[in-house]
């Protein structure tokens, strides 16, 4: 029981961690937040539904299409929101991304809404659960695949930031935007990549999540909320922190759902978000904030 719960908690948590990764990347490089991340995650799920169920191709074909769609949405979002991506327009940008979130959600509803309320995507890999220690530990295969995919994404991210030129640019903009501009780092490119990356990683998270749950057009917002919460718990500025935050959130949720009540599960996330924001605005590892004024 516990091991199954933990496996699904970790798997879900890693996906929240992916969304959180997107939140952090955008926050660091562009000092911005994008409410539509959750809806793009939902879109990732729906696109894989279309490829796998409607068109009948395999999961392998779904992934590149999900990525391409997310790239497209990302570039479009960037072009649309570019005029607002500076410090004076922070609130306006936030409002605009709420609009974007509505746009994406509406599009999903227009395309798939007529076919039903909830959609199921077949598992990426089917097979019996992995049973260890004579049944003391049971890990459903689905969760293992999800976790594996998430970890792979995380690794790709880490490699990208460490070894590519663009990753290096993005890191330096995050560290010191003004200095980065002075030494001639292409700010536009960095802002655009941050927007696109944050949406691609969300969409891939949606692709990974879809087989484990029922997908529906309204699923996005609470996913963004959880990803944001994970980023907060992780301190907002740290990529590993975001992932750890996601896992903490995911595990808390399943433990509450398993041992208290399943209806309390959603509530636990909100409580956690609230507590994290109020008491640990710099993350669990960032210490209590001290502020004047």
């Amino acid at each position: 029981m516990l091991s199954v719960l933990l496996a699904s908690g970790v798997a879900n948590g890693l996906l929240y961690g992916l969304v959180a990764l997107g939140v952090v990347v955008l926050a660091k490089a562009a000092n911005a937040f994008n409410f539509s991340q959750g809806d793009v995650m939902a879109l990732g799920g729906f696109v894989s539904y279309a490829v796998i169920v409607t068109m009948g191709y395999g999961s392998v074909a779904a992934l590149p299409i999900v990525v391409i769609v997310a790239l497209f949405v990302g570039v479009l979002s960037y072009l649309l929101l570019r005029p607002l991506m500076d410090a004076q327009h922070a609130v306006a940008l936030l409002t605009a991304t709420i609009g974007l979130s509505f746009l994406v959600k509406g599009t999903i509803r227009l395309i798939w809404g007529r076919q039903g309320d909830y959609f199921a995507v077949p598992p990426l890999v089917s097979g019996p659960p992995i049973i260890l220690f004579d049944g003391a530990v049971i890990i459903p295969l689905q969760h293992l695949v999800m976790s594996g995919g998430a970890v792979l994404m995380l690794a790709l991210f880490a490699l990208f930031f460490r070894f590519t030129r663009l990753g290096l640019f993005m890191r330096s903009v995050a560290d010191n935007p003004r200095a980065a501009r002075i030494v001639g780092i292409p700010t536009e490119l960095v802002l655009c990549s941050a927007m696109v990356l944050s949406l691609v990683v969300s969409a891939v998270a949606g692709f990974l999540l879809a087989p484990a749950t029922l997908i529906f057009p309204d699923m996005g917002f609470s996913l963004f909320l959880k990803g944001f919460a994970a980023a907060i718990i992780g301190g907002m500025m740290s990529l590993p922190g975001a992932v750890i935050g996601g896992v903490l959130l995911g595990v808390t949720e399943v433990l509450v759902s398993g041992y208290i009540s399943s209806t309390a599960q959603e509530l636990s996330a909100f409580v956690l978000i609230f507590v994290a924001l109020i008491f640990f605005p710099r993350g669990l590892f960032g210490g209590r904030s001290s502020r004047s004024v």
């Binding site: 409002t95 605009a96 609009g99 746009l103 509406g106 509803r109």
Partner: peptide
């Protein structure tokens, strides 16, 4: 009659106003 269009149009309205008529 169309929740989808409602969301798309209100989304577009929100973005449009923020951008062009803040």
């Amino acid at each position: 009659d169309s929740q989808g269009w409602l969301e798309i149009i209100f989304g577009a309205v929100l973005i449009g106003f923020v951008l062009f008529l803040p």
